[in-house]
Design a protein around this nucleic acid. Structure first.
Length: 311
DNA sequence: AATCGCATCAACCGCATCAAT
DNA sequence: CATTGATGCGGTTGATGCGAT
């Protein structure tokens, strides 16, 4: 069969997204929810292919995503998970709910690879090199198993979260008080607000250039795996994970729920009554596997040692 | 100040997989 | 079961920024 090209329509726009396009996309998703990407360009008039819209949303505009400034812990996790799972970025990203697979992939290729090489030259016996070589030895089924366990857990978590008809986002403040909020596009609104601020400061000469300058100005937003695109429920699940894996030292989750709400409201992304509600939530107990996976000491241990008990 | 080369990261592309019919 | 369309994933590319010269 002949697969239709991604850019099904002639005249489909490529390259960096403009603020206008972002706003259109966010508004549309706010109204209709993520998914059914095929219909997005049709219904919004965006001259982008469905794939491009999905990617833009999942990697950049989706709420609850953190960009740049990888913490030491995140770094270790990525190294550890990469050794374990290989280049399965989506699977790795599912353990770092605030990060997108694309972000992790980029970070791996630009920073961590080099770091590992350096280490390899330096002491030849670093934690990570060993992990890497072991990953080669580990059979594919083992990797699959690792991911499948997580997938199953995620599915379960998702199923549980369906109890609450309204999907919720879970936030943790500086006092480690966990709160939830209904899904909003606050982060996206924040992105766009910031972006427009810069946009106004630095009005681009024309539409084409505007995208470029804009894309460099915006530094927030980007998600975990593409799962984020599936539904706001999944998004809630991501935050669920994030909240009970409170390993992330960089807890400065950019903006609080309330700040988000205000910002987004200021920006007119949702009506007053749809402002995020802060409510309490139950914590999901951490599993042994995840305990093992995220244990700080284990992360510093050569992989072979740390996996000894599992296989 | 101009040029060059490297680093970074958003976005693209093609293939794989899933789901509907 | 086969076909087809939609979505997900991972590798790669290209535009841009930035430091060195």
């Amino acid at each position: 069969m002949v697969r239709p090209p991604c850019f099904e329509n002639l005249g489909t726009k490529k390259g960096p997204w403009t603020p206008e396009e972002d706003i259109i996309l966010v508004s549309y998703i706010q109204e209709h929810g993520p998914g059914n990407w095929r219909s997005v360009p049709k219904n919004t008039g965006l001259m982008r292919c469905s794939k491009s819209c999905r990617l833009r949303w999942t990697n950049y505009l989706r709420p609850g995503i953190k960009r740049g400034n990888f913490t030491d812990h995140e770094e270790k996790m990525i190294i550890h998970l990469q050794a374990l799972l290989g280049n399965r970025w989506a699977a790795i990203a599912s353990y770092l709910p605030q990060r997108t697979d694309n972000d992790i992939k980029n970070y791996w290729n630009t920073h961590l690879k080099k770091k590992l090489k350096k280490n390899q030259k330096g002491d030849g016996d670093g934690e990570t090199n060993e992990g890497h070589s072991i990953s080669q030895e580990k059979g594919q089924w083992e990797r699959r198993l690792q991911t499948d366990i997580h997938m199953a857990k995620q599915a379960l978590c998702e199923a549980l979260s369906l109890d609450n008809n309204k999907p919720t986002l879970i936030l943790q403040d500086t006092n480690n008080n966990t709160t939830t909020q209904s899904p909003t596009y606050a982060s996206s609104a924040e992105n766009i607000a910031r972006l427009l601020k810069n946009w106004i400061k630095k009005p681009p000469p024309n539409e084409t250039n505007s995208g470029n300058s804009f894309s460099k100005l915006v530094t927030t937003g980007s998600s975990s795996s593409d799962q984020g695109a599936q539904s706001s429920t999944t998004c809630a699940t991501d935050h669920h994970f994030d909240s009970f894996f409170s390993f992330n030292s960089d807890r400065s989750r950019s903006v609080s729920a309330e700040e988000n709400a205000n910002l987004a409201t200021d920006f007119g992304f949702f009506e007053e009554e749809t402002k995020p509600n802060l409510q309490e939530t139950t914590q999901v107990p951490i599993t042994l596997l995840e305990k093992w996976l995220f244990d700080e000491d284990l992360m510093n241990m050569p992989l072979q040692e740390s996996t000894a008990g599992l296989f």
